[in-house]
Design a protein around this nucleic acid. Structure first.
Lengths: 336, 336
DNA sequence: AAAAAAATCGGAAACGTTTGCGATTTTCTA
DNA sequence: TAGAAAATCGCAAACGTTTCCGATTTTTTT
């Protein structure tokens, strides 16, 4: 039951516990014969170094706080997977926190993480107000924001080129012969603002008329996207394609369309954004714009490590390239 | 930059730092006037208690290690969500580790968690061999297994009544008029053994002939389930319903059926197990057996807390009730 | 072969808490 | 009001490491 400590193996080896510490740490200040003897003794006795004691003196915990609105979201759980794998590969462990729906909980967990003495924080914001919500803490610990653009804020983040994503998608629809494309989704965050802008830019270049169907539903989930889409389909359909601002919204559109008897992609083409894993499911097969989740996560922990280990100040905005995932929800109007 | 410590506020308050500690901890050994003065001073100075220092003396980290095969799996990310919420509500934080596909990594992360001095470990096994794989460590720290049955092993776990789940599902199909039900899936773990048994039991009671389509594909994912289903549909279909051992397999069956032009539920009824969130998606709408993920997670952390805080020895097998989720993939053969 | 340099190891402080014990002060009891 | 009990607080040890510094021994240099 009792954990074996440095002192125990020092006593058994007949050396000081400073020597044992040096043997394990690969220090040069020790004879190679005694090192081997001690290392052998260590695993005979089942010694493992106590990280909290080490943290006490090194002032480093090797802990990264990962705060996400909720881990049971596909997009975030994928990010979390890659972040954990990458972090652990570099000697860090992940402390996971759900920041829930409200800003208060988000602030609470960040404060908690600070108390836990994490070396850095990786956060995917729950709201556009997250930045100011936790600003008081972001200068106390290295922090990088994930997946959400902060535009001109003096904070490091890694995100996809959202504007380019919708731009690519819109051009793809154009190539398929679509001339009336409806943009479905809000512009409540910088990220979504950028997505809308990319769509507008493509429209301008292609001489199309940008059209929007927005709403003030607060949290984008399948249900609310669905309800919004129901409202949409109660009106006449004078467009041939819908660009949904997120896969989640696209799924809502899909459900509403099925209910209303609107054939997708027969009557209406549909494209999403994010490429969450369920878009690849049978019968869904949603054409979408992929956020390179693996790359995002890896870059984010690299960025964080740089801040932690090299004390890099300043901030960097890392923008990754989106990629078009062609699947089955977009109809080619020309090759008929 | 420099964190404010107990000593700092003690000096500022003109008391010993023992007094400050007692003021924060709500001890009775302190005057209410000085307590208030100190508490006020603490948040003026921005003091937060250093958990690693506290852990050093209390021998408790307030950390729970959560090890899952991979967090980007819907089932596990849902479990993780509820586990984290529940744990944090009781003053614990979650250290997340992916145990990956191989046993070596699983053992590595468990060892790592021990080094980190976690108070307990919550683990969803990656393989039936997990139990023996980490047995050397499970007596060094409170451990509870999640979602996987261990049958007769002397270890605590919480799992759904898998046998009852398939039993309920098979009876449901029978009520709809199905008499030829094919069971689709392996029996490579105790959990899956139990699921098969429940199916068999129902067949016996209902005077049905149990039929299996098994395979030795090693990891159940959509793709391998899909490949297996393709093989299945290359043979004559002399059954009216398929009971897939997991939703993941059911999704594979669905995809293969669509490709082969087999109408579900028109020609073939389909039922899954787990009720992962994408089963509720439009166009999927899979009838399935739900594992109560929230309850499982909550019970698991409660069980773990009991071991940690009360030093409860022994082991308990907590079995939760599955519930039938009726959706759109099962056809009623009688009401025609 | 003597002096200098390098290698090897031990002593001890430090990290920031919690807590048992003793000392002092205050309040209560008779 | 004097003695006892209770309340309040400080001292110091302890948790298990890492690392600076100095002491001792070994190797190298001239």
């Amino acid at each position: 039951m009792k954990n074996v400590t440095l002192k125990d193996v020092a006593k058994a080896a007949g050396v000081s516990y400073a020597t044992v510490s040096r043997a394990l740490s690969g220090s040069h200040q020790i004879g190679s014969d005694t090192r081997e003897r001690i290392i052998k003794l260590c695993d005979e006795m089942g010694y493992t170094t106590n990280y909290v004691a080490r943290s006490m003196v090194t002032k480093k915990t090797g802990l990264i706080g990962l705060v996400v609105p909720s881990i049971d979201n596909q997009f975030m759980s994928e990010l979390a997977y890659y972040a954990e794998m990458s972090a652990r590969g570099h000697g860090y462990n992940i402390m996971l926190c759900n920041s829930g729906p409200d800003l208060k909980q988000e602030k609470t967990v960040v404060k908690l993480l600070l108390s836990r003495q994490v070396d850095g924080i990786l956060i995917v914001p729950q709201s556009p107000r997250t930045y100011e919500n936790i600003r008081a803490y972001t200068d106390q610990v290295p922090t990088v924001f994930l997946s959400e653009n902060l535009r001109d804020q003096p904070q490091s983040y890694v995100a996809v080129d959202n504007s380019r994503g919708t731009y690519i998608g819109a051009r793809y629809l154009y190539e398929l012969g679509h001339r009336d494309i409806l943009y479905f989704g809000r512009r409540h965050t910088t990220t979504h603002q950028l997505r809308a802008e990319g769509y507008i830019r493509a429209c301008q270049e292609l001489n199309l008329h940008p059209r929007f169907f927005n709403s003030e539903f607060s949290r984008s989930s399948i249900n609310t996207g669905y309800q919004l889409a129901q409202e949409l389909f109660s009106r006449p359909i004078d467009y041939t394609a819908i660009f949904a601002s997120t896969d989640s919204n696209a799924l809502g559109v899909l459900k509403a369309a099925d209910n209303a008897g609107i054939d997708i992609p027969g009557r209406l083409s549909l494209i999403g954004f994010d490429n969450i894993s369920s878009t690849a499911l049978p019968r869904i097969d949603l054409t979408t714009i992929e956020q390179p989740k693996r790359e995002m996560a890896v870059q984010a922990v690299d960025m964080l490590r740089d801040k932690i280990e090299n004390g890099t100040q300043g901030y960097v905005h890392q923008i990754l390239m989106p990629v078009l995932i062609k699947r089955g929800t977009c109809r080619d109007l020309l090759s008929n």
